[in-house]
Design a protein around this nucleic acid. Structure first.
Lengths: 244, 244
DNA sequence: ATCCATAGCCTTACAACGTAAGGCCTCTTC
DNA sequence: GAAGAGGCCTTACGTTGTAAGGCTATGGAT
């Protein structure tokens, strides 16, 4: 019997550590996740984990790679719009399956090999839609922004629910803020997907309009030559600032 | 001389604590921000801060309230589109002035009185655009998602720059991921505002189209009756999932 | 003038954190 | 059998949020 010191657990491995780590994050949240708790869960000591990862940050990056790398492959035979749709919803599914880990994905720059491969794949879809480099860059960013922002909200129900300070009681809220009260039914999780699609469609429609001829999706839009990408409002305005 | 114990600093107050705290967060980041460092900066001991706030979380919420509460008032005489534009850009300016604190704003539910007042104000703009409750709810969410996602990215340059794990060297990245390399010039901070506007305009144009008659901003769009809000794609599809 | 409550700030202490330094087995390879 | 490496652990340090309680100066009540 080579190992009978503590629990009769399996031997350590990157695979097992990462699987258990992801599960633990979902139990205790990102804040509550520590190497010591992970060690307890694994049936080993905290420092044993450092044999496999040089630091906690490296472990978290490995979790990122594992989740992103686990997404299904691009279906190159489909239309770009269908490919984009599937890729976005696969990403969304991953976020929903790991709601408490998702903020880590959303907040950190991931210039790992896996992260770059994922980025490359997304960009290819926009290229295949007929966008040039600038359009690809901007619309990838725009849609990425939207998806990240949406998923942060959709997954935050599982995470830290409320501010630690005194939340305003619901009864007071309803009276003092009528629009908030009126709008509340559409903020429920059951409405998340419909709302998500609404915004995504608006953005992807714009991509389609731009790809179809540089138009903006406004007006009649049947091919009217190559208008510049940026709407007038973009050229006219400069950054606004204000407040404290 | 009532106070000459340590530094000849001013007396403590919520106002001073919060001002110094915001500055410190920008120096050391959210992770590095601790009550002890704040105390040193204030010229007092860590526990003195707890006389003004019951916990660190309460202090952070106060910082949120201070920043949101400091945004300029809505200009009710302007068009809804101009009001929305100014509000969004005022928010963006605040985020850029507090880049390292912004993730806290983006990630937490803020049901404080200030947070709800802000929400109420945003919703009013959508109502004034002519949207009903459902449309207001959904488009507020959609635009909020986009703005939060965009600002997380725009401000993250100042925050934790890279993954702790081995980042792929730029030279390798350029060869292995051609689209990433081609697109890189448009990812620079100098392009942030143009990209931000591109997506925002796409979404607000959709709001305008919907407000003008339930259309989708596609096609000719002159008032063609009240079509249902949701595009066909929304009704036909169910949540997709996949991967590991 | 005295008393006492309160406000304001500090001291001490504890449990939990990431992780550096190094030790102790057990297995592989010669 | 020797040597080395792989795999896991022990101990320890500095940092964190904050509970518990002490000290002092102020201000109102008596």
């Amino acid at each position: 019997m080579p190992r009978s010191r503590s629990q009769p657990r399996d031997a350590l491995s990157k695979d097992r550590i990462e699987e258990v780590a992801l599960a633990l994050v979902e139990q205790v949240g990102l804040e509550g996740f520590s190497t010591r708790k992970l060690a307890t869960e694994l049936g080993c000591e905290a420092m044993s984990i450092y044999h496999y990862y040089p630091s906690k940050a490296h472990l978290l990056d490995a979790l990122f790679d594992r989740l992103i790398g686990g997404l299904p492959a691009d279906q190159l035979t489909l239309s770009w719009r269908e490919r984009l749709d599937r890729t976005v919803f696969a990403y969304r599914g991953m976020a929903h399956r790991n709601p408490r880990f998702f903020p880590y994905i959303a907040l950190h720059r991931h210039n790992t090999a896996v992260g770059l491969a994922w980025l490359e794949r997304m960009l290819t879809i926009f290229r295949d839609a007929g966008l040039d480099s600038e359009q690809t860059a901007r619309f990838f960013r725009v849609i990425g922004y939207y998806v990240i922002g949406a998923l942060i909200d959709e997954t935050s129900g599982y995470a830290k629910g409320h501010s630690a300070a005194d939340p305003v009681p619901d009864s007071v809220a309803a009276d003092a803020y009528p629009n908030v009260a009126a709008v509340n039914p559409w903020f429920k999780p059951s409405e998340h997907e419909a709302t998500f699609r609404l915004g995504l469609d608006a953005l992807v429609d714009r991509v389609e309009a731009v790809a179809a001829g540089g138009g903006q999706g406004e007006g009649p839009l049947p091919a009217e030559g190559l208008r510049p990408l940026r709407p007038a409002s973009l050229r006219a305005r400069s950054s606004r600032s204000s407040s404290r």
